[in-house]
Structure formats: structure tokens, C-alpha cells
Design a protein around this nucleic acid. Structure first.
Length: 121
DNA sequence: ATTTTGACGACGT
DNA sequence: GACGTCGCCAAAA
């Protein structure tokens, strides 16, 4: 009954690859998947992430500005911020500090190999 | 089926 | 650099 959400599935996979204490952006993931202008879809995919059996660290995915735009979608109000802070990330006013230092760019850090491998099954 | 909205981002003004 | 518009595409109304 898989809908072959290839794109979404990839998004989840990449999201799970985000290292502890690092964050990335929707656009970065989208670009990495070859859908540079479909950043919104990445966000929408995250919304459905709770539907996935495996947990997705959606709190490590923020927008390009480092703003915790999706915090509203988590349980409670500041759960997302707490999760990030628990990883050593400083968040002020829903905005990540030192974003450049903790930003994890899949395009630079990864290669398409990983996704491709998982995709063959 | 059509319209609106949305966890975004790039570009134009 | 702040603000507006468009593009992207999927889901909800």
C-alpha cells in the first residue's frame, strides 16, 4: 500500500541523517533531492512525518533563516526549542543562533549514494 | 472538480 | 534591506 512517495521518503531519510546538534533547512533537503524549488513539499512531508513508523527528527529541520517556523506543529508550544537546546543549540526568539556553525548541508556533507542505496529496496 | 492554504525560498520592487 | 509576488506541488475545504 505504499504510495511510492519517493520524494517524501527521501525527505524522511535525509532528515534522519541529520547529526546530533546540527540542523538543516527545508530548501537544502529539497535541493539535495533535486527539487530545489519544492521546499514547501519538504515541510509538508515533515507534517506527515508523524505518520511514519520511524521517528523523524523534524525539530532539526528549520527554514533557511534558522527560524523554528514549525514549532507550532509539535506538542506543546516550545517543545521543538527544548529539543534543540537539549542538543546544545542556542535558540532565541524561535531563531537558531550560530546557524552557520551548526547548519548541516546534505549537499556538502553527503553524497547521493546513501539515498540511492536505500532506494533500491 | 475548483479554490485555498501551507513546517519555504528565490527573485523583483 | 523590508515588503510583495511568484513558483512548487500536495492535501484539505
Amino acid at each position: 500500500m505504499k504510495k511510492s512517495n519517493n520524494f517524501f521518503d527521501k525527505v524522511y531519510q535525509v532528515a534522519r541523517l541529520i547529526p546530533y546538534g546540527r540542523v538543516t533547512s527545508y530548501g537544502a533537503i529539497a535541493t539535495y533531492l533535486g527539487a530545489a524549488r519544492s521546499a514547501r513539499m519538504v515541510g509538508w512531508a515533515m507534517n506527515n512525518s508523524s505518520n511514519q513508523e520511524l521517528e523523524v527528527p523534524a525539530h532539526r529541520v528549520v527554514n533557511k533563516k534558522g527560524l523554528l517556523t514549525g514549532k507550532h506543529h509539535f506538542n506543546g508550544t516550545n517543545l521543538m526549542q527544548q529539543l534543540l537546546e537539549s542538543e546544545g543549540i542556542v535558540v532565541v526568539e524561535n531563531q537558531i543562533q550560530d546557524l552557520e556553525k551548526i547548519f548541516w548541508n546534505p549537499i556538502e556533507e553527503l553524497t547521493q549514494t546513501i539515498i540511492d542505496k536505500n532506494n533500491q529496496s
